[in-house]
Computed example of a mutant assay.
Amino acid sequence: MASIDEILADEQKLAEVTKAVFDQVDADQSGQIDRRELKLAMAQVAREANIEAPSDQSVDQALKVLDADGSGTIDVNEFKVLIRQLLEALR
């Protein structure tokens, strides 16, 4: 498996990682992550990290930050910003 640095240095690898994670979160396979799907994903991460589930306000804030075009949903390109930030934080 590629290292975090290799993924961050290669846009194709970053796109592949982003798409794989995006597809897991996009439960209805609509090509968009809606508020409900985002909340479920955030709650799952919280459970796995053994921390408190996100509040509705936290979910709304995350959606607002990630939804660059104001559509009310997150597309794969908007999601890639989050994946890049997460990978950079894990370095």
Rank of each mutant, 00 (worst) to 15 (best):
S3Q: 08
D5L: 10
E6M: 09
E6W: 06
E6C: 09
E6K: 11
I7F: 01
D10A: 05
E11D: 14
E11I: 04
Q12N: 14
K13W: 03
K13H: 02
K13R: 14
L14Y: 05
V17P: 01
K19S: 06
D23M: 11
Q24N: 07
Q24I: 13
V25R: 03
A27R: 14
S30L: 07
S30K: 11
Q32L: 09
I33Y: 01
D34P: 04
E37M: 08
E37P: 03
L38Q: 06
L40W: 07
A41M: 13
Q44D: 12
Q44Y: 09
V45F: 13
R47C: 03
R47A: 08
R47Q: 14
E48C: 10
N50M: 10
A53G: 11
A53I: 12
A53E: 15
P54K: 02
D56S: 12
Q57I: 07
V59W: 01
D60A: 14
Q61I: 05
L63K: 02
L63T: 05
V65P: 00
D67Q: 10
G70K: 05
T73V: 15
N77V: 01
E78Y: 04
K80R: 13
L82S: 10
I83P: 02
R84D: 05
R84Q: 12
L86I: 14
L87M: 12
E88F: 02
A89F: 06
A89S: 15
